[in-house]
């Protein structure tokens, strides 16, 4: 073949080699096709570890709280037993070292999440007793009168 054929051909071959070399160095070593096949499983394996080692904030473990706060467990005899400590007291994180003290959400809005009456016939919401927040002691924290750990009206402060 003549030089005018080979010259551009060399250029193309160089380009292909360059792309393959760049690909070899730039694509991470753990990039590959894993369990879910070519269509869904094409990824870096180490990305799974990123999510597996993500920090857990909520324990949602009743025994964890009970070890120190056993006196609060009167709540277990009440309808509020189904609500986990951390839903009102915030995520445990590394408590008691970090943070040393958890903050309690005492806002009226927290109670109204369930106790704002909505009579929706096919929803569990219809079965929860509620109050009208506009007429029922506006501006006062619910816990001023009601004990959230002993919520029955008979046990009012």
């Amino acid at each position: 073949m003549k030089g005018h054929v080979w010259r551009p051909l060399y250029a193309v071959i160089c380009l292909v080699v360059l792309v393959l070399a760049a690909r070899y160095f730039m694509v991470p070593k753990d990039f590959g096709i894993y369990e879910r096949g070519y269509m869904y499983g094409f990824h870096r394996k180490s990305a799974e570890d990123y999510w597996k080692t993500f920090k857990v904030k909520y324990q949602f473990n009743t025994d964890y709280c009970r070890d120190c706060h056993a006196e609060k467990y009167s709540i277990m005899q009440t309808p509020h037993a189904i609500i986990h400590c951390e839903n009102c007291h915030g995520p445990v994180l590394d408590h008691p070292t970090d943070p040393e003290k958890l903050s309690v959400d005492k806002k009226r809005e927290l109670c109204l999440r369930c106790h704002l009456p909505l009579s929706y016939p096919t929803s569990g919401r219809a079965n929860i007793r509620g109050v009208d927040p506009i007429t029922h002691n506006p501006g006062i924290e619910c816990s001023a009168c009601h004990n959230p750990h002993m919520p029955s009206l008979e046990a009012m402060k």
Partner: peptide
């Protein structure tokens, strides 16, 4: 969502959960 990703940054793990590779 996995099929359309042009760079392989979202994928399905062996347990069926679809994950995102944040750095990719």
């Amino acid at each position: 969502c996995v099929q359309v990703c042009p760079v392989g940054a979202t994928f399905q793990a062996s347990d069926g959960v679809v994950l995102i590779d944040r750095s990719w």
